[in-house]
Computed example of a mutant assay.
Amino acid sequence: MRASQFVILGLGRFGSSVGQELMEIGCEVLGVDRDEEKVDEFAGSLTHTVVADATDEEVLRSVGVRNFDCGVVAIGDDIQASILAAILLKELGVKQVVAKAVTELHGRVLERIGVDRVVYPERDMGIRVAHQLTSPNLLDFIELSKEYTIAELTVPGCLSGKSLANVNPRGRFGCSVVAINKARGIVIAPNADDVLNEKDVMVVIGTNEQIEQFQHSIRS
């Protein structure tokens, strides 16, 4: 089975981090940057690296970007270059284009030109840190949409020894515990009789409001 192939335009902190993680997963990654030092730095950790201008259509053609499964535009310091690179990837037929945005306006422009997914790494990390600072039981959360979230919540001492039926998050708040990460392993789709222990991690899905209410109720 062929490994998924990614081309990453821009090898700054975001682009290089994405590229190295994709390599860990087993994907093939081509890194493109006009900074020769950055290209040399990551030459050993990515499948291929190229010193090139990501806004040059002929260069992108020559490296065969249309044959890649996904193109990631990780250019953050030059919004014009980011937009132009995204347009070129779409025009050259890359199957999926993901782009980093540094502002809401930048993101809206990327969406307008047909980018399949726009990510805001700085904004999203700031949101995660703020939630973690204000919610001691919250380990992590992922927004599924503007309304729905998946959150990881540590089980406080006040819930230790109680079953999911006793806690009843679905009946009381409308959110569901879809997994419990215990010391002995992960319980997927736990039933009402499963017992919670302190420091277990609950994976909860629901609306932002439902999860916020549940979080508030279990603060120890």
Score class of each variant (00 low, 15 high):
2 R>D: 12
3 A>S: 14
4 S>N: 13
5 Q>C: 10
6 F>H: 05
9 L>G: 00
9 L>I: 10
9 L>E: 01
17 S>L: 09
18 V>H: 01
19 G>S: 07
29 V>F: 04
31 G>F: 01
35 D>R: 12
40 D>P: 07
42 F>P: 06
42 F>C: 11
43 A>L: 13
44 G>K: 14
45 S>F: 05
46 L>W: 03
46 L>H: 03
47 T>P: 04
49 T>A: 09
50 V>Y: 04
52 A>S: 14
52 A>R: 08
57 E>K: 11
57 E>V: 08
58 E>P: 02
61 R>W: 10
64 G>E: 08
72 V>K: 00
75 I>L: 08
78 D>V: 06
78 D>F: 03
78 D>S: 09
79 I>N: 02
80 Q>F: 08
83 I>S: 00
85 A>S: 14
86 A>G: 04
86 A>W: 00
87 I>T: 10
92 L>Y: 09
92 L>G: 04
92 L>R: 06
93 G>R: 09
93 G>F: 09
94 V>L: 07
97 V>S: 01
99 A>H: 03
100 K>S: 04
102 V>E: 15
103 T>I: 11
104 E>T: 13
105 L>M: 15
106 H>M: 12
109 V>K: 04
111 E>L: 11
114 G>R: 09
114 G>T: 05
115 V>K: 00
118 V>Q: 07
123 R>L: 11
124 D>H: 10
124 D>V: 06
124 D>Q: 11
125 M>N: 11
127 I>T: 13
128 R>Q: 15
129 V>W: 07
131 H>S: 15
135 S>Q: 13
138 L>F: 06
145 S>Q: 09
148 Y>A: 09
149 T>I: 14
150 I>D: 03
153 L>D: 02
153 L>I: 11
154 T>A: 14
156 P>D: 08
156 P>M: 05
161 G>F: 05
166 N>S: 15
166 N>M: 13
167 V>N: 00
170 R>W: 06
171 G>I: 04
172 R>S: 12
175 C>F: 03
177 V>K: 02
193 D>R: 15
195 V>P: 00
196 L>K: 00
200 D>S: 09
202 M>T: 02
205 I>V: 11
205 I>T: 06
206 G>Y: 00
206 G>L: 01
208 N>R: 12
210 Q>G: 05
211 I>L: 08
213 Q>H: 12
214 F>Y: 05
216 H>F: 08
219 R>S: 12
